[in-house]
Structure formats: structure tokens, C-alpha cells
């Protein structure tokens, strides 16, 4: 009986390993077909078209992901990657929405992408940022208070007082690889790489955008204060969810 159980366990483990290999193999094929022109064959963000893109593709071997719902320093959730893959990253960034990629192909390619950065296999599960159970209502008071945060934290240095992304520091902004970057015009939410709903704005402000000049405000201001800042942005600049004029 012990031998039988041992054989079953061994067979199960081998099957799982084989399935994982199969998944990675499929993921690599999808990656090479769909992702490698930008992100490169080895995932370093140096694909054949990358040099001519305004926003440079991610280097998957560095594990830096712009859109995530985890605390600073932690890797993104699988769901974060899946959402980014499915929704794309705004209209100035060349990261497309791969919603028409089959669901199992999306899972396979994410498994392959994660295999390019060893911490995905070794790290503890990432810690998700805290969200309020209920989205606080926007009021005149929260908007006024949010304006003081926008000015006090000096958001305008990059985003500009009018939100057009024309602050005094804009010219000097570089990403972690030294490429010139510019902050999005807050009046054009279709340019936001992390989405433009109030919840998206909350997440982006709290986590920052890794590898860019957008810092995480987690710990600098409280969650309530972040919501006030979100209210100010939504009132003054952003029409949440607004699409580009067609």
C-alpha cells in the first residue's frame, strides 16, 4: 500500500512538473510571437522595435512593474499582471490591450514572464495595499483638502499647476534606465497607464509607479489624505474613465 501511495504521489508530482513545463513552453511561444518585438527575446526590454518607442518597454528580468496593488518593494499580484496584460497601459504607451489573447494563453505567458525573475518563485506572497471598505464620498471639503495636498506634496513640480504635465521638473525626468519620460496630462485620463477610475487613482498614488519618477505616497500621507487628493484630481482635472475624443 505504501508503495502504491508513493507511486501515485511521484506520478502526481511529475505530472505537475510536466504541466508546468508545458505551460512555460506555451508561454514562451506566446511571448516570442506577441511580446518579444518590444520586450526582447530575453525579456530585457530591448526588442527589435523598442529603440523607437517613446516609453521603453519593461525589463522583465529586473522585476519592476509599474502597475501593482502591493506595497512598495513587493512584487505585483498575478491579478495585477493579468489586468495590465488585458487592459494595456494608456494611449501614449505602446503596451497594447491583449484582451483578444485567449485566456489560457494569457495565463501561460504570464507564467513565462514571471519565470524571468526568480523572486516570483522565492518570495513570500506579496502584501496587498489596504483599500477602504467603502469609497469615501467626494465633498467640497475633501476637494479643498486635496488641493492642499497637491500643493504641499508638490505634485505640480511634475504635473504642473494646471495638470498638463508641464511642471518645472518635467525636463529632467528620467526612468530607471535613463530614458526621458514625461508625466501624463492629468486632463487626459486616457493617457493614464494604471487606469483613471477613482480607485485606480488611489492605487497609483499609494503604490507609485515603479521605475518611473512617480513615487509611492504610502506612509507619506494617510489613506484618507490620499482619497482627498484623489477627489481634488477628479474634480479639477480628471474625468474618471473618460476616453480619448474620437
Amino acid at each position: 500500500m505504501k508503495h502504491f501511495i508513493g507511486i501515485v504521489l511521484l506520478f502526481t508530482v511529475l505530472s505537475l512538473v510536466a504541466a508546468q513545463d508545458l505551460d512555460l513552453k506555451r508561454g514562451r511561444k506566446v511571448y516570442l510571437d506577441s511580446c518579444s518585438p518590444c520586450h526582447g527575446i530575453t525579456g530585457k526590454g530591448d526588442g527589435i522595435v523598442a529603440a523607437n518607442l517613446y516609453v521603453k518597454p519593461r525589463d522583465f528580468t529586473l522585476g519592476q512593474y509599474k502597475i501593482k496593488s502591493t506595497i512598495d518593494g513587493d512584487l505585483p499580484l498575478h491579478e495585477d499582471l493579468y489586468t495590465t496584460l488585458s487592459k494595456g497601459m494608456g494611449q501614449r504607451n505602446s503596451m497594447l490591450a491583449w484582451a483578444h489573447l485567449r485566456g489560457d494563453d494569457r495565463e501561460a505567458v504570464l507564467a513565462y514572464i514571471k519565470s524571468l525573475y526568480p523572486r516570483f518563485a522565492t518570495d513570500e506572497p506579496p502584501q496587498v495595499i489596504s483599500y477602504p471598505a467603502v469609497v469615501p464620498p467626494m465633498t467640497a471639503k475633501t476637494i479643498r483638502q486635496g488641493k492642499t495636498w497637491y500643493e504641499g506634496i508638490e505634485c505640480g513640480k511634475c504635473h504642473g499647476l494646471s495638470g498638463h504635465g508641464d511642471g518645472p521638473s518635467t525636463a529632467a525626468l528620467r526612468d530607471e534606465q535613463g530614458h526621458k519620460i514625461t508625466p501624463p496630462d492629468l486632463n487626459k485620463p486616457w493617457l493614464f497607464i494604471g487606469g483613471s477610475t477613482r480607485m485606480d487613482l488611489f492605487r497609483t498614488i499609494k503604490t507609485g509607479i515603479a521605475g518611473s519618477a512617480m513615487p509611492s505616497l504610502d506612509g507619506i500621507i494617510t489613506d484618507d489624505q490620499i482619497w482627498e487628493l484623489v477627489d481634488y484630481l477628479a474634480h479639477e482635472f480628471v474625468q474618471p474613465g473618460e476616453q480619448a475624443p474620437r
Binding site: P37, I48, V49, N52, G88, S94, L96, A97, A244
Partner: peptide, 17 residues
């Protein structure tokens, strides 16, 4: 919803993608 250079080297020449 993407800029031209996603698919073009310079207009109108297509890039690999």
C-alpha cells in the same frame, strides 16, 4: 489606442511588430 510607432518604424514603413 496606440501611437504610430507601435507599428511603424517611420511612417509609412512598418516595423517588425
Amino acid at each position: 489606442g496606440k501611437p504610430c510607432q507601435t507599428c511603424h518604424v517611420a511612417i509609412p514603413k512598418l516595423n517588425d511588430f
